[in-house]
Amino acid sequence: MKNILFTLMFVISIGSFAQTSDQELNPNKWRVGGGIGLGFGSNDYFGFSISPSVGYEITPMIEAGVSAGYQYSKWSYAKQNLFNFGPYVNFYPVDFLFLRSHFEHYLGTHTWQSSNPDVSDLKENYDESALWLGGGYRSPGKVSFHVGIMYNVLYKENSSIFSTGLRPMAGVSFGF
């Protein structure tokens, strides 16, 4: 099922870009952006994330692109490295609102560090897909800020790397 959804999203993204094949890609329709996160908390928690993206305005109402990301988290006795990548499609029914479909695949590890030198660390590998659907607000212009919320329709409560199917999102993009 995950492979079918990934293939479907990939074909939709490529098909969206292919619609422009009769004309040259307009250099003024590219958007580059993403987000950066930093967090601190109890149990010596530290977290860092970065998620760059690049998109192309196919029509004034549709943008398609790809994103990648990296998340690092460390607690007193654990650490996590998580990579993600995937295509997205944004639909803008009006200038300041957007709807988003974003497929992402996540790969990574979570390591629990043992305080006992005679016991080895426990390591778990992650390999999970997510299909995020949602929307939000975006500011118009060459420099655009967006904020919204998405839901992972592939979320499974007892077997997911995510604690919830909901995810807030915020970021900045630059058009050129």
Rank of each mutant, 00 (worst) to 15 (best):
Q19G: 05
A170Y: 02
F17D: 05
H146K: 06
I58M: 07
N84Q: 06
Q71R: 15
Y70I: 13
K79N: 15
G41T: 03
V54G: 01
P87Q: 05
G148I: 07
I62M: 10
N3W: 07
H105Q: 13
M150H: 06
W112T: 10
K2E: 14
I12P: 00
T59W: 05
Y77A: 09
S76G: 06
V54E: 00
Q19V: 04
Y88K: 01
E157M: 06
L8W: 04
F103N: 04
L38Y: 15
N125Q: 10
G41P: 00
A64W: 00
S144R: 00
Y126P: 08
V94P: 03
L107I: 11
A68N: 03
I4V: 10
I161H: 04
R167P: 02
Y77H: 10
A170K: 02
S173G: 08
V119M: 13
S53R: 02
E57D: 11
V11N: 06
I36N: 03
I50H: 04
Y70L: 15
P60K: 08
Y106N: 04
G34K: 00
Q113I: 15
F83R: 00
L5S: 06
P168W: 11
S101D: 02
S73D: 14
P168I: 11
K142W: 05
W112F: 09
S120A: 08
G134H: 09
L38M: 13
A18V: 08
H146M: 08
L82C: 11
K74S: 15
Y72H: 15
L38N: 08
T7H: 03
F98D: 02
P27C: 05
W30M: 09
P117N: 15
G65Y: 01
S13W: 11
V11I: 15
I149Y: 09
G41S: 03
T20D: 11
L166T: 11
Y56K: 07
S120T: 03
K142M: 09
M150Q: 13
S129M: 09
G135A: 10
G65N: 04
N84Y: 00
Y92P: 10
D44W: 06
L38Q: 08
Y70Q: 14
S101L: 06
Q113M: 13
I62V: 15
E124Y: 12
Y56V: 12
L25I: 12
M9V: 11
N158P: 03
L25Y: 02
S173A: 12
V89C: 05
N125G: 10
G175S: 14
Y155D: 01
I161M: 08
F91T: 14
Y88E: 01
S21V: 13
F46V: 14
G165S: 13
V89G: 02
V32K: 01
W112N: 11
A78C: 04
G134T: 09
D118G: 01
F6E: 08
V11G: 07
V66F: 14
G41Y: 03
G69T: 02
G86V: 12
L97N: 05
Y155R: 06
R100Y: 04
L166W: 14
V143L: 14
F96I: 12
L8P: 01
G55N: 05
D118F: 13
G135S: 09
G136H: 06
Y70G: 13
S51I: 00
L122W: 02
M169H: 11
H105K: 13
S160R: 05
F10N: 09
M61H: 03
F174N: 08
G37W: 07
T59Y: 05
P60G: 04
F83C: 04
S49Y: 04
S115V: 13
I36K: 01
N26G: 13
S53W: 00
V147L: 15
L25V: 08
G141R: 12
